[in-house]
């Protein structure tokens, strides 16, 4: 499956990916200004830029083949789609127990504590695509689309053994 790969030599640490991700997963997926101004809860990104003085890179869910989070989820809310390979959380069933955070080796799951507690993670913009009916999201996730220096690449796996 296609995943997002980061190039740390090229990443500038501007965090635009975080901003666009938060917007895409807000109540106003297509409107950055409204997302940050109008939504009562702060829009949360599902991608994280790690940085220090010399390097930076963005990290989000790797959509693991043998996804530890889906096996550990106590409610069955976290599932891997058998066709697309996308790992996503059914937020209606999630109870915010954070067992998935306990087992995700990438630290790719956030806590959304603002309303009903839910685990918040990258869905490769698949839900955004469904909600907005905009195909552009499903073709290429917004973080990749909006990275000004092309530090994020959306491509088929280059890792041996990964599907």
């Amino acid at each position: 499956m296609k995943r997002v790969y980061a190039r740390e030599e090229v990443c500038m640490g501007c965090k635009l990916c975080e901003v666009y991700c938060a917007t895409a997963h807000s109540e106003y997926p297509l409107d950055l200004v409204k997302a940050f101004l109008k939504q009562k809860m702060k829009p949360l990104p599902r991608i994280l830029v790690e940085y220090n003085l010399s390097i930076s890179f963005a990290l989000q869910c790797r959509h693991c083949d043998e996804a530890p989070c889906t096996k550990a989820c106590i409610t069955g809310a976290m599932q891997k789609d058998s066709v697309t390979g996308i790992v996503s959380n059914d937020e209606r069933r999630c109870v915010g127990c954070w067992t998935c955070i306990l087992v995700c080796p990438f630290g790719a799951i956030g806590r959304d504590n603002q309303g009903h507690k839910v685990a918040s993670k990258c869905d490769l913009c698949s839900n955004v695509a469904d909600q907005t009916d905009t195909e552009s999201f499903s073709n290429v996730p917004v973080c990749v689309q909006n990275c000004p220096n092309r530090a994020l690449q959306f491509m088929d796996s280059v890792v041996e053994g990964e599907e």
């Binding site: 790969y5 980061a6 190039r7 940085y51």
Partner: peptide, 19 residues
């Protein structure tokens, strides 16, 4: 604490970071 604190080699291997 995050992958930024990993030695570069280990980080690249784990995240399959691209050149």
């Amino acid at each position: 604490f995050g992958y930024i604190h990993f030695p570069k080699e280990l980080r690249s291997q784990r995240l399959s970071l691209r050149k």
